[in-house]
């Protein structure tokens, strides 16, 4: 039972962490709270299927063999994010964070309705990697294979990102830009390169979330990005805005809290699980308004 809970918490938290990273990366370099991130996820989901009015979707890109499919979808997510950056956020580079946030909200609405126009509002069943629902026995717990794969993939992605940020040139530049963008530019960091890099990474992470969500739920729904984006936001706020490690930690914490709530709440209260979760977060923020893992430089200087 408890082992089962651990796997639930880890796989759910891992997905939340990846989504939160996608938001924190962009916030770090350009103070943009990207309200379109959920729609990046939804777009990556719909990229798998062909437009049709049927309830069972016909796979388009999703028919590619897996080793090809994963890079193609990640590339799609990255390209979409880069396009959004070039079309919407580059002209707003010097705008206030509030204007950026509102623009990203508008972009999200536009993308969602674009999906609605192309694919219709009806949720569609998608069978991607159907074999992965298969349960595996681990120490007395029944764990779906997919859950194990998700945990493994998340660990791999986090390790890869950490290595990249610590040791590669672009990673160093991103961290410098997150600390003090103006200073980094004066020292020769190219703004466009860093910001495009952050958007591409964020889009690719959104595509990862999309693949996992499709495999887990077997549904493509225009609205599917909203809930996970909200949780990712909450994770970035809890983690202290702009702290990547904080966002990941908070993502896992929220995953654990929601797995626990799912188990602990009586059946009739379960539909309200998310409401409890959001309430819990507002409560936490009451006591630590700067977030659980706020970086030292988070307070604005005069």
């Amino acid at each position: 039972m408890s082992l089962q809970l651990l796997f639930d918490a880890l796989s759910l938290g891992g997905i939340y962490a990846i989504a939160a990273l996608g938001i924190a990366l962009i916030f770090g370099v350009m103070q943009l709270v990207n309200f379109a991130h959920g729609q990046f996820i939804a777009c990556a989901v719909f990229a798998l299927i062909l437009p049709s009015s049927q309830a069972v979707a016909e796979l388009g890109l999703g028919r590619l063999p897996t080793p090809l499919l994963i890079p193609v979808i990640l590339g799609f997510g990255a390209a979409l994010a880069l396009l959004a950056e070039a079309a919407v956020f580059r002209p707003l580079r010097n705008a206030a964070p509030v204007a950026l946030m509102v623009a990203s909200f508008a972009l999200g609405v536009a993308l969602q309705n674009l999906l609605l126009v192309i694919y219709g509002s009806r949720p569609k069943a998608v069978s991607l990697w159907a074999g992965l629902g298969h349960p595996v026995q681990i120490g007395g717990a029944q764990v779906p294979l997919l859950q194990l794969l998700v945990i493994g993939a998340v660990a791999l992605i986090l390790a890869g990102l950490a290595l990249m940020l610590k040791h590669s040139r672009i990673g160093l530049e991103m961290r410098a830009a997150a600390q003090d963008f103006g200073m980094a530019r004066l020292l020769g960091v190219r703004a466009n390169r860093v910001i495009s890099g952050a958007f591409a990474l964020s889009g690719a992470l959104a595509a990862v979330v999309a693949l996992v969500m499709v495999a887990q739920t077997g549904v493509a729904d225009v609205r599917m990005g909203g809930q996970i984006m909200l949780i990712a936001f909450i994770a970035t706020v809890l983690g202290g805005m702009g702290s990547l490690a904080g966002a990941v930690a908070a993502g896992f914490a929220i995953g654990a809290a929601s797995a626990l709530l799912q188990m602990a709440l009586p059946a009739e209260a379960r539909p309200f699980r998310d409401a409890f979760l959001y309430g819990l977060v507002i409560l936490v923020l009451l006591f630590r308004p700067q977030g659980l893992f706020a970086p030292a430089g988070a307070k604005p200087r005069v």
Binding site: V98, M101, Y278, V281, I282, L285, L286, P289, G291
Partner: peptide, 24 residues
Amino acid sequence: AILRLSGIAASIATFAFLAMVNTI
């Protein structure tokens, strides 16, 4: 609760509040 947060974080918290009311 929400307005103790600084600008952007407060905005996100209002979004969570909206989702909470809608869920209920």
